[in-house]
């Protein structure tokens, strides 16, 4: 049998590439949820990041400005959510939904003049090495965001487990009342986490419009924000498991694309529905263990916090 190792390498690289936005957005949201905040606006923040990144790239031709611009835009829009839920004490669920609707609207508005424009060339690293059989396409010739995405969950893991700041985030998510008693500024911590989540969703969006696609298409996040939210539950709030879950979803997406290309006699739409059906399946399997979910869910997740004076 003739197995083309290089082809397998390319497929694995494709899987990894398609999981990048999921890793970034889910890990960002993981920090947000660990601090006790449920931001359902991930989809909206990703799409804002996508258009901002693309717009900055087209106007400045600087990848650095484009990336930071997208993250900055993510932070700005996440601050709307932060201000509403933390300062005006609104319910997390509807506020997050509003953020998604708003983000999709704003992105389409901003993107009016960018529709159909081809994306710019993005610098990649170790371009010449990607000819190496198998590991070449996997390890080399990718953008900076790609590499970042695969080390990022490890950083977040270390941050949560080993640093005092991470401990404070977990403490706030465990109980905002106790945290207040201990003199922790709960609202400040949560604002910072929300902004961090916004930045990471923004970066995920930038990856879509600058690297993955690369152009601006309305609604191009196509549910990735929601899948990222599901991944956080799947990972039981552990960043390393987010990595695993994202790769799993990446594989399904790539698999169905290849099946479509190979002309498998299953309607395209059914294949395209696979990632969404898989999300449901995975959620069901993981949620059946009630005890495990309860032990890992941040205790104060989604609860509005009001500090009595």
């Amino acid at each position: 049998m003739n197995i083309d190792l290089n082809f397998i390498g390319i497929i694995i690289a494709a899987v990894m590439a398609s999981s990048v936005p999921l890793i970034l957005a889910a890990t960002g949201e993981l920090i947000v949820e660990r601090s006790g905040v449920l931001n359902l606006g991930v989809e909206g923040m990703i799409i804002i990041g996508a258009i901002s990144g693309f717009a900055f790239m087209m106007s400045t031709e600087s990848i650095v400005i484009a990336i930071f611009g997208a993250m900055f835009a993510g932070i700005i829009i996440s601050l709307i959510f932060g201000f509403l839920t933390q300062t005006l004490l609104t319910l997390h669920v509807p506020t997050g939904l509003a953020l998604t609707i708003f983000g999709i609207g704003v992105s389409a508005m901003l993107g009016k003049n960018f529709v159909g424009l081809p994306g710019k060339e993005i610098p990649v690293f170790f371009e010449n090495l990607d000819k190496i059989t198998f590991i070449g396409p996997i390890l080399f010739g990718h953008s900076i965001i790609f590499y970042f995405a695969f080390v990022f969950p490890f950083f977040v893991y270390y941050f949560l487990k080993k640093t005092k700041m991470g401990l404070i985030v977990r403490a706030v998510g465990d109980s905002h009342h106790v945290a207040t008693d201990q003199g922790i500024n709960v609202i400040l911590v949560r604002y910072l986490c929300i902004m961090f989540g916004g930045a990471m969703s923004g970066l995920a969006g930038a990856y879509l419009s600058l690297v993955y696609t690369p152009q601006w298409i309305e609604n191009m996040s196509s549910g990735r924000g929601w899948i990222a939210l599901a991944l956080v539950v799947f990972a039981t709030w552990n960043p390393l498991k987010v990595l695993v879950g994202a790769l799993l979803f990446g594989s399904i997406s790539i698999l169905q694309l290849h099946m479509q290309a190979a002309g498998v006699r299953i309607p395209v739409q059914f294949l395209s529905a696979l990632p969404y059906l898989l999300t449901i399946l995975v959620l069901v399997v993981i949620s059946r263990d009630d005890r495990k979910i309860k032990l890992n869910t941040p205790n104060s997740l989604g609860k509005t916090f009001y500090k009595e004076n």
Binding site: I80, L84, T95, A98, I101, F102, G103, G105, V106, M109
Partner: peptide, 16 residues
């Protein structure tokens, strides 16, 4: 999409 912006805004402001 300006419609969606207005829809998002209404919900934001209502919650606020």
């Amino acid at each position: 999409s300006i419609g969606q912006i207005f829809q998002g805004l209404i919900l934001f402001f209502l919650l606020a």
